[in-house]
């Protein structure tokens, strides 16, 4: 799982490290002048050069200590991040099943990019992701605003609405197989008794994606609400007071103060939502297995990689597919960043 919260904080951090480094320099010079002061008490000429020596070796020693602090994390980065990424790149040019390897150039990429199955998974992934995000963010924001505006039971609603997000998506998918069952499920029963049209959900390729979307909305909405609430409460109350004095109604305040002030939050949710959505795997695996049945209608890019890599043991093909997916995610995140920046 990846997370782009950092991007949101990135400039902030850079600013912080900048100001910090300035502060550090002052501190350092202070220490040095203190040392020099001490050394001045003794023999001047020898003292200074001696001090420079000890200061240098002290600094080196200190630096080594700091690297020991970083050792576990950077061993992890090297072994579990850098090596796999490089190795995966190399593998994507080989025909491999884990033991026998043969260099075949860009044939893996050609094969993936001309594969109808792969493009079908790209389509499925984007389709499910698009509707999940376009439904959940507005809906979650409206509910967060409602929760924020009621006087009683705020915490109760927060806890209730967030509950689906705490349960693992695997268990949730298991439950939804029954909830959305065409004949025995509660949803179709409720729709039917209200006189509304029912759906075939997971049992038919033409509707199965909507089942996954419903599950994804149900699971994600609590997260959207919590993030929206945290940011709603951070909007300065003075803005609302000023608007009230100008005679703005509640709806007007919501439209012209709340929504513009939340654009950063929406951007954040859009980006994290897409990153998560493009990596969708767990729920579609539980619902449709590695090939996303019925008829590959809910097979995502992640499932394609799993199918080729770990049921077919075509490591080269799977590696090429992961790189294509990686690039798709990076490009799409970049576009999202640009788009949401423009709105800001």
């Amino acid at each position: 799982m990846i997370n782009l919260t950092s991007i949101q904080y990135f400039y902030q951090t850079q600013m912080e490290t900048l100001t910090k480094s300035v502060g550090k320099k002052e501190g350092k010079s202070l220490v040095r002048s203190q040392m020099e002061l001490q050394s001045n008490e003794g023999d001047q000429s020898v003292g200074i050069s001696n001090d420079v020596e000890t200061l240098k070796s002290k600094k080196r020693k200190a630096a080594i200590t700091w690297y020991i602090f970083l050792l576990p994390s950077f061993l992890g980065i090297l072994l579990f991040m850098v090596y796999p990424i490089v190795e995966s790149f190399r593998l994507s040019f080989f025909q491999s099943n884990g033991t026998i390897e043969k260099f075949i150039g860009i044939r893996n990429f050609e094969q993936v990019l001309t594969s109808k199955t792969f493009w079908n998974t790209v389509w499925n992934t984007f389709f499910i992701g698009f509707f999940q995000i376009m439904i959940t963010i507005p809906l979650g924001f409206v509910f967060a605003s409602l929760i924020n505006s009621v006087r009683k039971g705020q915490n109760f609603f927060k806890v209730i609405y967030f509950l689906p997000n705490v349960t693992s998506i695997v268990a949730a998918a298991m439950i939804f197989q029954f909830v959305l069952h065409p004949e025995m499920g509660v949803v179709n029963y409720a729709l039917d008794s209200l006189g509304l049209p029912t759906s075939t959900w997971f049992s038919d390729p033409s509707t199965s994606k909507w089942g996954v979307i419903l599950l994804a909305v149900w699971h994600w909405i609590g997260f959207v609400i919590i993030i929206c609430l945290a940011n709603l409460q951070a909007i300065s109350p003075e803005l609302y007071e000023a608007a009230k004095i100008d005679g703005a109604s509640g709806i007007q305040q919501w439209l012209f103060i709340t929504i513009p002030n939340m654009s950063g939050t929406f951007a954040f949710l859009l980006i994290t939502g897409w990153i998560g959505g493009l990596q969708r795997f767990n729920e579609v695996y539980v619902l449709g297995g590695p090939n996303g049945s019925p008829a590959r209608s809910i097979q995502t890019m992640g499932a394609f990689i799993y199918e080729r890599g770990f049921t077919g043991f075509e490591f080269g093909i799977a590696s090429a597919a992961t790189y294509i997916m990686f690039v798709i995610i990076l490009i799409f995140t970049f576009i999202n960043l640009k788009v949401s920046k423009m709105k800001l």
């Binding site: 799982m1 997370n3 980065i77 579990f80 995966s88 890019m301 992961t322 997916m325």
Partner: peptide, 23 residues
């Protein structure tokens, strides 16, 4: 080094799956 740490946030699990498995 800190930027390197932040970069790891952008690396998903999928491209690392197979090499980690063989490792």
């Amino acid at each position: 080094l800190f930027i390197l740490v932040l970069c790891t946030l952008m690396i998903p699990m999928e491209p690392r799956l197979i090499p980690l498995y063989t490792l």
